[in-house]
Design a protein around this nucleic acid. Structure first.
Length: 570
RNA sequence: UGGGGUGUCGUCAAGUGGUAAGACACGAGCCUUUGGAGCUCGCAUCGCAGGUUCGAAUCCUGCCACCCCAGCCA
């Protein structure tokens, strides 16, 4: 194994994934830029809940600050009072914290800087670099030109500094109606980059802001607020997504013309996952139109949805680590997300037995009123998790799918005349199949071999299958929710209307599942593995103290299903 | 002849002139009181075409493809 230490070191190095952003930071550090500080930030707009794509950004920004011994800020980009709410601020704070990113005492709001922003705008006006425009929104659009044709100057572009100052102040004071005027930066109406064609810095909105109330009648645009907020906070590396690439010249222009600390904007490709949508607008629509139960519906790609679904913060962080950071647009396979969850939970989830679709089995040669306790291992991956005792009796439930009257080849489970092992208990052999009037199997009569207690035969004979089970008189009834992908298409937008691709069977609720008694006291948020079935978490919303509801987070790798699928294809 | 980006395995993603990491997925096998987990093995010549070089995914030239931008959204 360790016959070559040099190779081991190289492996360690390879384990720390390099990416273009780290290279930029390494170079900046070498050059002593920013006094060798690294300071990042996560700047959400409080107009919706965070999703897995935001988690990537959070892990990236926080991870960089952590690894380089720097700082990380949480800053709400709250410049549009019409779309923002403090309820979103609360959900976002909760999610960022849950993901493990620590902003310490650096929780900020762009609205904290409205005063400073206003003063800087006045400075630009005085410098002849900004002006008040009376054109309507439609006119501004017309004057802007097109992608291939240059724009033309607004007739108000050359107003005097005095007039601009006076008008801007009146805008601020609320003397003009919404939409009647804007403050624009005076840059270049002929620029090939449309963002430089005199971008709007302030618009009039007589609106109540979630933090500043009715104090302001003008609100800064994203471009005007963002870079300056970064500068004020001493951010060194301002990381954002690709679509802001052509905003960078404007980001730089404002900072250069103000002569203030100049962070470097760096763009990376946002996360896309197949079978999922990441658009806040579309997610909002799913919520508002009732396609899901809310932002935290376990089928949602939101951080809250994933949390409720049973994803651990560790698994999400690991996922974000593994997908890497680059500039090329990509679509990550959802299988990787599921893999990181299984990988994490495999190590720590307690194993329990739960029968989702019960079929009663009567063990004919087992004494009527006998009950014995069998020892079960809590987690084969973790000896320290210990063992527990579970009751075994004459009548038990097994999974309906674990019995087939006419089993195909390679079906290792129970069938007439066949012997299988009941996990931790005994070998049983199916002797008789009992059906109802319609021919449905309603009960199995079996015999057990008392010599096989614990699950192995003294004579050394082996069985192919091992089934999970729950003792009938001791079973606890619980509700279990099984989730499937919310969309049928890898690309939910395929065909133009994502709503048409919604999977109508994305939620299946099972109400009479039988679980072992120890699960009665399961607490919300606890992770479990139901043997042979998957990972489940106690739902945090609908569980009651004595009635847990379980959500299936992800199934176990299912080789049997794969074999069946292959058989069908042939 | 608008501007800005990107093209390495099915999917992500390293590689920065010295002869294609890793992960997921997939396939084969071992092992197994979860058909789980684990283990072993297999799996690309780098968008295309030229060129430079002893040697190119890496440099040059020319193509091609895809993505973003015309909100007083972020």
């Amino acid at each position: 194994m360790n016959d070559n230490k040099i190779n081991e070191n190289e492996d360690d190095k390879a384990a720390k994934p390099s990416n273009f952003i780290r290279e930029i930071i390494d170079r900046d550090l070498e050059e002593g830029k920013n006094d060798s500080r690294v300071h990042t930030r996560f700047p959400p707009e409080p107009n919706g809940w965070l999703h897995i794509g935001h988690a990537k950004s959070i892990c990236l920004n926080y991870g960089l600050a952590r690894d380089y011994g720097g700082k990380f800020n949480l800053r709400f980009d709250d410049t549009n009072p019409l779309k923002e709410e403090s309820s979103y601020v609360e959900s976002i704070k909760k999610d960022v914290e849950w993901l493990g990113a620590k902003w310490e005492d650096r929780l900020f709001f762009a609205s904290d800087y409205f005063e400073q922003l206003y003063e800087w705008a006045v400075k630009l006006i005085k410098d002849g670099k900004a002006y008040v425009d009376d054109l309507s929104a439609d006119e501004i659009r017309e004057y802007r030109g097109t992608l291939t044709e240059p724009g033309k100057n607004s007739p108000h572009r050359d107003r005097s500094v005095e007039e601009n100052l006076e008008l801007f102040e009146k805008m601020k004071d609320g003397d003009f109606p919404d939409g009647s005027r804007v403050l624009r930066a005076k840059i270049d109406m002929a620029s090939g980059n449309i963002n430089l064609r005199d971008p709007v810095m302030y618009r009039i909105k007589h609106a109540e802001h979630h933090r500043t109330g009715g104090k302001w009648c003008v609100y800064p645009s994203y471009d005007w607020a963002h870079g300056q907020s970064d500068s004020i906070e001493g951010i060194t590396h301002s990381i954002c997504t690709l679509e802001f690439e052509d905003h960078r010249p404007l980001y730089d222009w404002f900072l250069d013309n103000l002569g203030v600390h100049h962070p470097q904007q760096i763009e990376f490709a946002r996360l896309n996952l197949n079978y999922m949508i990441m658009s806040k607008r579309k997610l909002l629509q799913l919520v508002q139109e009732g396609y899901v139960s809310g932002w935290d519906d376990p089928r949602m790609p939101t951080v809250a949805g994933l949390r409720r679904r049973g994803y651990s913060p560790e698994s999400i962080r690991e996922f974000c680590e593994r997908i890497g950071v680059a500039k090329r647009e990509s679509v990550v396979d959802i299988a990787l997300l599921e893999h990181t969850l299984r990988e994490d939970l495999n190590k720590r989830a307690l194993r329990m037995m739960a029968v989702l679709r019960p079929l009663k089995v009567v063990i004919e040669n087992y004494p009527e009123d006998k009950v014995e306790e069998v020892e079960a291992i809590n987690n084969p991956e973790d000896q320290s998790a210990g063992t527990r005792m579970i009751p075994f009796s004459r009548e038990i439930y097994i999974e309906r799918g674990d019995f087939l009257e006419d089993p195909p080849k390679k079906f290792f489970r129970l069938a007439p005349g066949r012997e299988v092992r009941l996990k931790h208990a005994y070998f049983i052999t199916c002797k008789e199949v009992i059906k109802d009037g319609s021919g449905e199997v309603i009960e199995l009569r079996c015999t057990y071999d008392p010599e096989t207690r614990g699950g192995s035969a003294p004579d050394g004979r082996r069985v192919k299958g091992t089934l999970h089970w729950v003792s009938v008189p001791h079973a606890v009834d619980v509700e279990v929710r099984l989730f499937d992908r919310l969309f049928n298409n890898e690309d939910p937008a395929e065909g133009g209307d994502f709503l048409k691709n919604i999977n109508p069977d994305s939620l299946e609720t099972l109400t009479e599942c039988k679980v072992e008694p120890g699960l009665k006291d399961a607490k919300p948020g606890e992770y479990y593995q139901f043997l042979r079935k998957g990972y489940f978490v106690v739902d945090s919303e609908d569980s009651t103290p004595d009635q847990p509801v379980f959500n299936r987070s992800v199934g176990l790798r299912d080789t049997w299903a794969k074999i069946q699928k292959k058989g069908k294809k042939k």
